[in-house]
Structure formats: structure tokens, C-alpha cells
Design a protein around this nucleic acid. Structure first.
Length: 857
RNA sequence: GCGGGAGUGGCGAAAUGGCAGACGCACUUGGUUUAGGUCCAAGCGGAGAAAUCCGUGGGGGUUCGAGUCCCUUCUCCCGCACCA
């Protein structure tokens, strides 16, 4: 062979992802049916594999790469296992960044967003992800958001969407309202440094609280969800059973809301020990008192400031308790006792009723407060037996009431029920359940979102349907389906002015009432973008439907999602809203499932130098760079290899290089034997050589290992390690193989199966090699190999021998040796003999196939 | 404070109660090439010349046998938090 020929041969034998990957990408792009799901009648079991749809920022980051590498490996594996797989992708395309970009670059949000989508889609193709682009969903397009409007009207009709004036969270940077879920420690979820203000606005709300109990109880059944997510949702819903009790305010009544103070308590059994009332600084009664007493007003204002500051600094848990005595009294309805009314900086207006009864003897916080201000402490609960514990005594179990007149002797739990019922009977209270979960405020004073499909009829008119109330002038009228979609106007100037941008467009704002035809104004707020992502995965099942959000039979076939994969940062917002939406759709008769996803997987973060990648830390690794340097296959495979998918992953570029080297070795190996594989027409071996057996044994052990990893723990790091070990073994056997000691059929089976096993992890690579070895059809539609136990079995195994639990030697025995044979072999071993010499063997433990332990004295 | 997770080589990590450190990275030595982010071989927890001993955050326990189970304690990460 000439030098030139040799170099050419070497060049061809070398793995070159820059050549292979674009070639296959182009071929796949030409075949849109490649990753298409089949219908209900495919006769195959279905598998809905879903990764969370991204916001189209324009750039994939490593977190995306990891998320999609996991989902893609699973989808491809399930295809190879013969499932009918739905593996879609879409774009969470409405939202604030598009408006910010519009301000900055003077690009219309729509244009900016669609450009970003195109760029990211190209990146996804470049990564070789197996999405069915025919079912692509883009939430900012009318064919999607019209169904948001449709749902909104349905919810309005069901009383699940309603308007109310309320204090809402206002982010001065976003210039819009935030849902409670978007406020983190008093700050905007998008602007960590921006303190959220409270404003009084009339807003649209979705009645998620109607489903609070079902959302809570359903968590117990979501066994395929991480405990962490379930716990977070439980905390978020924050169900708390207790009672409301009215304390009459003594003396002159100063306002409509001031005749009584309603407290919420979970311990109504301790009410005889209440020695003060504590109000939140923003409580209506506190405000009324303050209105008549400037000095008091000032003190209350100071308390409120302390509270606000503490919440802003994420320090409310450690706030130093302060209070001010209003000098007024309220009356405990159980014993007619007068108790002083205080205002406390540690009482929150937005939980319960914003007022509590303070029972110092049986609540640590009240105890601390009472001690500080010299309020009296009265014990009303005693331990059932034994010594009386020191105050504050907060136990509910094995405790009984004392100093509580006719309630004395009752257990706490019993008293709680009976006393709440009594309060209700007497009309001064009732049992109640409080939730931390609030109704979902969905109005946004933004442009780039779904227009809320409501109008306000200027004139008012009678009800179109008998029995329903007439519409007052300015009243709300829902648009009929025929009037949908309400299109988001194009060419809207984005400014930093407050208020809804749509309100500044007369052509949008002014319309006619669909009922009376009179003049009307449109709602100019748009919907929270979490509406879009609450049901998008149903749309994938019927993405082109223009008569309904989706056809029920299609959704019922595919749902629930078999595996949902995404970041834990969506544990509350997206995952609670979409559970809510699912329940609403079920109650609308559209679907049968109660929950959207049977299994949820939350992958760990991708970190660099020990910290989450972020621009500010300057530790961002760009997927494009990695792909340019090492190829998409190596990049993806590293993301799966470096750590189990549920753990955080430290990105080390050297590791990607290592995977690239590994793929290079496999490439050389497979191409070297490609001809043997192509010619290896007979898969059945007549007789196996020793080397055949060794290779096939390791091969089938590897198949078993990977198959198990896919169905169980998803520890792809060990799957890939197993493939590496297999490859190492083949490389080590190369001299023997090349010396003719292996049969072509065995080589063919090993090489062919190796390529198949790499298909879920490195699809371009596998497709290329599959072609080179003459594989038929598409590699990731080829049946996944089945491990042959017989072939995988070892005939000789190594057994560690311990003496008193310490390793002494490793002996080789036939794999099918029985206990006696292993024991004899162990006792016959020279090293073992030396160790037990002069001692008595008290006990011999033989675990066949595992070890021998000799207990000696 | 409550809930969840994690502590194992220089690093990422592996180990149904059964040989701790598979696999990879980095590193060391040698070799082939030498245009090399190439390839190959050997080594790589600590102590020791070796036999051997020690070693999975600390302390106890269960067991023939514990990284793994139980108790206790410390540290780190994540979520929730005077929620009445």
C-alpha cells in the first residue's frame, strides 16, 4: 500500500462527527414521517414521552441538552422495544422577554420569537433529537391561543373564571401583575432584586381553590412523581383545618367591618387561654382604629414597615416580635372575657383572616410575645397523665382541657370538633379549612400574551338566556365561540408606560357587544403565560385540529403522559396549574384522566465549577461550542454519562473529549469488521470458539444491564460504562480475533448489537455505522436486542473467601458448584489454610455464586 | 424549625447486606508516531521493602459479613417556614 493510500484509508477509518452528523441530519430532515407516532390502531402499546417545552430564548443551554438527551434516549429505546411512541416538542412562546427584546432592538415580539424558534429548532435538529415536528405547538400563534380563549370562556361559564378587585402583586419592572406563585420572598420571580408591590386592581382569577382538596389528595396517588415535588405541592396548597371565631369589638363601632374580629385558629380547644387578640398591621379593624388615633397610626405603620422589610429580606422567619396595644378590647364569645386588642408585626394579613387569638400557654410564638409585653398566661391544656410539662405546652395528643368550664376533660382533638360545632350553632363561628393556595390571578397588563376574550357592554342589556341576570352598563360579556379567536393585533408599539398596551389601540379596544350589538370595550389584559403551558401537551395529540383544542379520543388514547421529564424548578407553578387544568377538562367531559402525567422525572442541574451556569458567573458552556468541537453525539452522551440523571452534573469538557475518544475507538472497531458483519449471513453458530464464547458472554451481560437500566433506575451513566467495558474487552481480544480465533458469525453479532445499543445515546453515530455494516432499515426502528441468559452465563466464577469477614483470597470455581464443592475448594486453598491454621472453624457461611466466610476461633 | 437529597480517591462517579473505588477524567512512566486535543502499554485510595495493615463525614449498634440496615451526631445542597 502506498503512503497516500494508507493515509486515505486512515482518514476514512477515523471518526469524524463533523461529516457524519450533518449528513444524517439532512437525511432525517427529508423524512418527516421518521419520528411520527402511529394511531390507536397500530396494535402496539403506546408510550407518550415528553420533555417540558422550552421558552424560545433563541439559544439552547446545557440544561436543555441534558433534558432532551434523557428524553430522546428513552423515546428511541421505547421505539426499539416496539412501542408506539409520541415524542413531540413545542414552544412556550408568549411572555415578557419578547417585549423586552422589542424595546431593546425595536423588533416586533412576534418576529423576534419566531426567529428564536427557528434558531432553536435548528439546534434541536443538529442535536439529532427525535421529535415529530408535524405535531409542533407554538403557543403564540392564533391556532393555539384561540383555544386558551375557548377554555377561558368555558371556565367563565362554569364560574371558574371570575373578576374581582383585590390586592395584587405588582412588579414595577415587569409593569404587570404577578400570580402568588411568581412572587418569591416578596420579589419578582424574574427580577430577583425587585420588590413586589401590592396594588388594588380588578383582575381575572381562575378558581383553582375549588380543586384544592383534589389537588392535594391526588398527590398521594402520584407514585411515579418524586417525593420532593409532591411535598412541595403539599406545602404550597397548605391545607389547614381549624375554626373561625368572632370576637365582638367592645365599645363604639367605628366602621362597617369593625363590629367584630374574626380569628382563624387551628386550636380552638385552647380558646379559654386566649389573653389577647393580635391583628395584622393591615387588618381592617387596625386601620379603623388608626384612623382615629394618629399616634397609634404611626406605631402601626412602623410595625408594617418592619414586617415588609423582613419579608423583603427573606427574613420574616426570624423577625423580632413587636406589637402595640390599641387600648381597645374584644370579647371572647366562649367565656365573655374581655381581652385586649393588639397589633403585631408578626401577623400576616394574607393568611387566614389576618387576626389571631393569642394563647401564650399553648403556643410558642404567643408565649414569647406575652413574656415580652407582660400579657397574662393561662394554662388550659394539661397532659393526660404524668408530670405537667412546662409552658408553653403545645401538644395535642394525650392532652386534655382544663380551666375551660363544661369542656374540661375533653381531649384536644375532640374539643376542637365540638367547640367549632358549638360556635357554629351559636352563630359566632364555624369549622373551616384554610389554604395557602389562592385563586390563580391570570390577568397581565402586557401585550405579548393571549387576549382575554371578554368585552364590557357599554349600554347593558337584558340577559340573552332566561333565568340569568341582565348585564349592567359596563358589565362583562363573554365572547361566543364564533367570535374567537380574538386576534392579538400586530404592529403594537411597545413602550414602558404602565397599563395594558392593548388599551392604547382604539381599533382593538372598541368593539360591539356580541349580545346586543351596542358599543362595547374589549378586555385589554392578556393571560398569564402559564395558561399556555397548562394544557399544551394535550394539543400535541391533535395539533392541527381547528374545530376543538383536541379530539377526545386522541387524548384518551395517549394520556396520561407515560413519562414527563423536566427541571424541578417547575415543581409548583407549571405542574400544579397543569394538574388543575386537567381536572377542569375532565369535568368538561373532554378527557378521562385525572392527572396529566403518570410518571415525572426531574433531572438535576448542569453546573460548572460547582455553581449553576449563569451569565453573571461567567461559567456558561455553550452547547453549540461543544457540538462544534466534539459533535452532538459526544455532547449528548457525556450529559448522560457524567452523572445519574437525577443528580447535578458537573460539566467537564475533558469528559466530553473522553466520550469522543471512546466513540472514535468504536468507530475504528466497527468499520474494521464491517465487512465481516456484512458477510456474516448466518447468525447461527455451528460451533463456538473460546473467544466467541467470551465475547458473546460479555455482550449478553451488557444487553441485560442496559435493558434493566432503561426500565428501572435510568442510570445511563452505568449503561454507557457497561458499553465501554464491552468495547474494552473486544479491543483486548482483537489480536485473537485477527488471528482467526473468532468465528465471523460471532463477530457479526457482537458488532451489530454494539451499534444497536448505542442508538439511543448516539443516534447519528449509530445510524452511520449501521449503514456501514449493512444493517437493514432504520437503526432505531430495529428491535432492541434480547439478552440470552444462557450465553451470558459464566462457567467459571471467582469467589472471595473471607476469614472472620476479612478477605483472604479469591478462588475460582465452576459456576454451577454447589455449597459443598465451594466450601471444599475454600478450605483447600493454601492462603486460607495458612490463615486458619491452629484455629477452630466454628462456622462456614457459603453463599453460592457470592462468597465464603469462615468463622474461626 | 419542618420536609427532601447528598457526604466514597486529585475530579465525575460505581457497588440486589457479600472482593470498596467499575467506567471515565486528570496525572505518572514507557512506547509508536511526531503536524498532533493521535494511538498503544503499564501504573494510579493511604501506610509499608514486603507480608500485611488502615480506609466510604464522626460515634454507637444489628449481622458470619455494613458504603449499604438501625440509633445518634456533624456538614453541605434544594424546597418550605412565626401560616396562627
Amino acid at each position: 500500500m502506498s503512503e497516500i493510500e494508507k493515509n486515505e484509508a486512515e482518514r476514512q477509518a477515523r471518526y469524524n462527527p463533523a461529516e457524519i452528523e450533518p449528513k444524517w441530519q439532512a437525511r432525517w430532515d427529508e423524512d418527516p414521517a421518521l419520528y411520527a407516532a402511529e394511531g390507536h390502531d397500530s396494535g402496539k402499546p403506546k408510550f407518550y414521552c415528553l420533555e417540558m417545552l422550552p421558552y424560545p430564548s433563541g439559544q439552547l443551554h446545557m440544561g436543555h441538552v441534558r433534558n432532551y438527551a434523557i428524553g430522546d434516549a428513552l423515546a428511541r429505546f421505547m421505539w426499539m422495544r416496539g412501542y408506539n411512541v409520541l415524542h413531540p416538542m413545542g414552544w412556550d412562546a408568549f411572555g415578557l422577554p419578547a417585549e423586552n427584546a422589542a424595546l431593546k432592538n425595536n423588533t416586533p415580539p412576534r418576529e423576534w420569537t419566531l426567529q428564536n424558534i427557528a434558531a432553536m429548532k435548528q439546534q434541536m435538529r443538529r442535536m439529532g433529537l427525535s421529535y415529530d415536528w408535524a405535531t409542533e405547538v407554538t403557543t403564540c400563534l392564533p391556532d393555539y391561543y384561540r383555544w386558551n380563549q375557548w377554555f377561558f370562556v368555558k371556565m367563565f361559564e362554569k364560574g371558574l373564571a371570575y373578576r374581582k378587585k383585590s390586592k395584587v402583586n405588582w412588579c414595577p419592572d415587569c409593569q404587570t401583575v404577578l400570580a402568588n406563585e411568581q412572587v418569591i420572598n416578596g420579589r419578582c420571580w424574574r427580577h430577583e432584586d425587585t420588590i413586589v408591590e401590592l396594588r388594588d386592581l380588578t383582575q381575572w382569577f381562575l378558581r383553582i381553590t375549588k380543586y384544592a382538596d383534589e389537588l392535594l389528595d391526588g398527590l398521594d396517588k402520584l407514585e411515579g412523581w418524586p417525593e420532593k415535588v409532591r411535598t412541595m405541592q403539599r406545602n404550597w396548597i397548605g391545607r389547614s383545618e381549624g375554626a373561625l371565631v368572632d370576637f365582638a369589638v367592645e365599645g363604639e363601632v367605628k366602621g362597617p367591618d369593625c363590629a367584630k374580629i374574626t380569628v382563624f385558629t387551628t386550636r380552638v380547644d385552647t380558646i379559654y387561654g386566649a389573653t389577647s387578640i393580635q391583628l395584622a398591621p393591615e387588618h381592617a379593624v387596625a386601620k379603623a382604629f388608626a384612623a382615629e388615633d394618629p399616634a397609634l397610626a404611626e406605631e402601626i405603620e412602623a410595625l408594617l414597615d418592619e414586617q415588609k422589610k423582613a419579608r423583603e429580606n427573606d427574613d420574616f422567619g426570624a423577625i423580632e416580635k413587636h406589637g402595640v396595644n390599641t387600648g381597645l378590647f374584644a370579647v371572647n364569645p366562649f367565656n365573655d372575657e374581655r381581652v385586649p386588642i393588639w397589633v403585631g408585626n408578626y401577623i400576616l394579613a394574607d393568611y387566614g383572616t389576618g387576626a389571631i387569638m393569642s394563647v401564650p400557654a399553648h403556643d410558642e410564638r404567643d408565649f414569647e410575645f406575652a413574656l415580652k409585653y407582660g400579657l397574662s398566661v393561662r394554662r388550659v391544656i394539661a397532659a393526660e397523665q404524668g408530670e405537667q410539662p412546662e409552658l408553653p405546652f403545645t401538644a395535642e395528643e394525650n392532652a386534655v382541657l382544663i380551666n375551660s368550664r363544661e369542656w374540661d376533660g375533653l381531649s384536644c382533638t375532640e374539643a376542637q370538633q365540638k367547640m367549632a360545632a358549638f360556635a357554629k350553632e351559636k352563630g359566632f363561628g364555624e369549622p373551616t379549612v384554610t389554604y395557602r393556595l389562592k385563586d390563580w390571578g391570570v390577568s397581565r397588563q402586557r401585550y405579548w400574551g393571549t387576549p382575554i376574550p371578554m368585552v364590557y357592554c357599554q349600554n347593558g342589556h337584558d340577559s340573552p338566556e332566561p333565568g340569568k341576570p341582565s348585564v349592567e352598563p359596563g358589565g362583562v360579556v363573554a365572547l361566543p365561540e364564533s367570535a374567537l379567536p380574538v386576534l392579538l393585533p400586530a404592529n403594537v408599539e411597545i413602550t414602558q408606560e404602565g397599563g395594558s398596551p392593548l388599551g392604547r389601540i382604539p381599533g382593538f379596544l372598541n368593539t360591539t357587544c356580541p349580545v346586543c350589538g351596542g358599543p362595547a370595550r374589549r378586555e385589554t389584559d392578556t393571560m398569564d403565560t402559564f395558561v399556555d403551558s397548562s394544557w399544551y401537551f394535550y394539543r400535541y395529540t391533535d395539533a392541527k385540529d381547528d374545530a376543538a383544542p383536541f379530539a377526545s379520543d386522541k387524548a384518551n388514547y395517549w394520556f396520561p403522559i407515560d413519562q414527563y421529564i423536566g427541571g424541578v424548578e417547575h415543581a409548583i407553578l407549571h405542574l400544579i396549574y397543569s394538574r388543575f387544568w386537567t381536572k377542569v377538562m375532565r369535568d368538561l367531559g373532554m378527557i378521562r384522566n385525572d392527572e396529566p402525567a403518570a410518571r415525572l422525572f426531574t433531572q438535576g442541574m448542569v453546573i460548572k465549577d460547582g455553581a449553576k451556569m449563569s451569565k453573571s458567573k461567567g461559567n456558561v458552556v455553550s452547547p453549540d461550542d461543544m457540538i462544534a468541537r466534539y459533535g452532538a453525539d459526544a455532547t449528548r452522551m457525556y450529559a448522560l454519562f457524567a452523572a445519574p440523571p437525577d443528580r447535578d452534573l458537573e460539566w467537564q469538557e475533558e469528559g466530553v473529549a473522553g466520550i469522543s475518544r471512546f466513540l472514535g475507538r468504536v468507530y475504528r472497531l466497527v468499520t474494521k469488521y464491517a465487512e465481516v458483519v456484512r458477510d456474516g449471513s448466518s447468525p447461527h453458530l455451528v460451533s463456538r470458539t473460546e473467544i466467541d464464547q467470551a465475547l458473546l458472554r460479555r455482550l449478553h451481560q451488557t444487553i441485560a444491564k442496559i435493558t434493566q437500566d432503561f426500565s428501572g433506575r435510568w442510570h445511563f451513566n452505568t449503561s454507557i460504562a457497561a458499553i465501554m467495558s464491552l468495547v474494552n474487552e473486544i479491543v483486548a481480544a482483537e489480536p485473537e480475533i485477527d488471528a482467526g480465533h473468532a468465528s465471523p458469525a460471532a463477530i457479526a453479532e457482537v458488532v451489530r448489537t454494539l451499534v444497536l445499543m448505542l442508538a439511543p445515546f448516539a443516534p447519528f453515530f449509530a445510524a452511520e455505522l449501521w449503514e456501514q455494516i449493512g444493517g437493514e432499515g432504520v437503526v432505531f426502528r430495529t428491535a432492541w436486542p434480547v439478552a440470552d441468559e444462557e450465553l451470558a452465563r459464566e462457567d467459571e466464577i471467582e469467589i472471595p473467601v473471607q476469614v472472620n469477614g476479612k478477605l483472604v483470597n479469591v478462588i475460582k470455581v465452576a459456576a454451577d458448584s454447589d455449597e459443598e464443592a465451594i466450601k471444599a475448594a475454600a478450605l483447600a486453598d493454601e492462603k486460607v489454610k495458612a490463615r486458619i491454621e491452629g484455629k477452630t472453624v466454628v462456622k462456614v457461611i457459603v453463599v453460592p455464586g457470592k462468597l465464603v466466610n469462615l468463622v474461626v476461633k
